[in-house]
């Protein structure tokens, strides 16, 4: 188990390193940083001074090493717009995104698993078919459009829910959270639902497929032959088997959910790091873009690692293999 963990950690480290190269190349080479960083009004001498100041006259590999060194010390440059360390800026916006993404992922399980269970148990019923048709919509509708429709119906037409912002927040561990206040929850309802729509469809389909696959198994028939109640057969014997792939996928989806929060945050003006990155791209605030990308990559790799460990703990069969 330990050697396996160490090996996974080293692997993860290499991926992070590879991503720093890609991000560096992506941002420093494709777009010309000189054009971005220096105002067009600056004269020749001014230009040369700034270029030297930023180290842009150095060879590429040196620039990369400087960048890497900074990254290791938690220094990814200062935002041009906010004149604050980029990393600090991102970190400040992170809780808003995290609570939105985690809520969305939890919602996908709370809504997706029961629906999928039902659709799996009654695949030919009207409701079962409707659920499946709905999941196709959840997969194919663009998130931003669904968000707009939510606003149009629940904020503009019905006036039930607020359409923008985080609402009132309360502090916990020195961080402001929306989920701690009623007003915050009301603000979070639509964005979270919007963000979770894709995941709901995914979890729903996964659960349904799992039910269809598990039900004809001998061990289910044997459980019924023991005289167990249908509830016990479904909620213990079937569900426990399905939860392994569902938890794995949901865990892995947390990363993409955080990434896709970019869209939802823009629609609902949710002040998270997704909205920040879009704003930063629009004004070409390069250090913030780099900081965001590095942060996301790190997040992804951490999540993948955690899911791997969780998966190993959940499935007794895998657990044994890694021991042996």
């Amino acid at each position: 188990m330990l050697t396996w963990l160490v090996r996974r950690l080293i692997q993860a480290l290499f991926v992070v390193l590879a991503m720093t190269v890609i991000v560096f190349i992506g941002v420093h080479i494709i777009g010309n940083p000189v054009d971005i960083l220096i105002s067009p009004e600056a004269d020749q001498a001014e230009r040369a001074r700034i270029i030297a100041n930023l180290g842009l006259d150095q060879p590429l590999w040196r620039q990369y090493l400087v960048f890497l060194n900074g990254a290791l010390h938690g220094d990814l440059g200062r935002s041009f717009v906010f004149n604050e360390p980029a990393l600090k800026l991102i970190a400040g916006r992170m809780p808003a995104t995290m609570e939105l993404a985690v809520t969305a992922v939890l919602m996908s399980v709370v809504i997706g698993v029961p629906l999928g269970l039902y659709a799996g148990l009654k695949p030919n019923g009207l409701l079962g078919r409707t659920i499946m048709a709905g999941s196709i919509l959840g997969f194919s509708l663009p998130t931003f459009w669904v968000g707009l429709m939510l606003i149009m119906v629940f904020a503009v037409q019905l006036g039930w829910l607020p359409s923008t912002g985080r609402g009132q927040t309360a502090a916990l561990f020195g961080v402001q959270w929306s989920f701690l206040t009623w007003d915050g929850l009301r603000h979070m309802a639509m964005p979270a639902l919007n963000l979770s729509l894709f995941n709901i469809s995914l979890v729903l389909r996964l659960t349904r497929a799992g039910v269809r696959e598990t039900l004809p198994m001998d061990f289910i028939k044997f459980a019924r032959a023991k005289g167990l109640s249908p509830a016990r057969v479904i909620f213990v014997h079937v569900l426990k088997n399905i939860m392994i792939p569902v938890v794995t996928v949901v865990g892995l989806e947390l990363g993409s959910t955080i990434a896709f929060a970019v869209v939802t945050e823009s629609v609902f003006a949710w002040p998270g790091m997704g909205k920040l990155i879009i704003d930063s791209i629009n004004v070409l605030d390069r250090p913030v873009i780099v900081a965001y990308l590095m942060m996301i990559v790190l997040l992804f790799i951490t999540i993948n690692l955690l899911v791997d460990i969780l998966y190993t703990m959940l499935d007794p069969r895998v657990r044994l293999e890694t021991k042996g």
Binding site: M217, D218, F219, I220, K221, F222, A223, A225, K226, G227, L228, H237, K240, N241, I244, D315, P316, R317
Partner: peptide, 18 residues
């Protein structure tokens, strides 16, 4: 399971693996 019980063909598949 009480008065009438049954055992199946494939022991690898009769017990719930998880």
């Amino acid at each position: 399971g009480d008065r009438i019980a049954m055992i199946f063909q494939d022991p690898m598949m009769t017990l719930n693996p998880v």
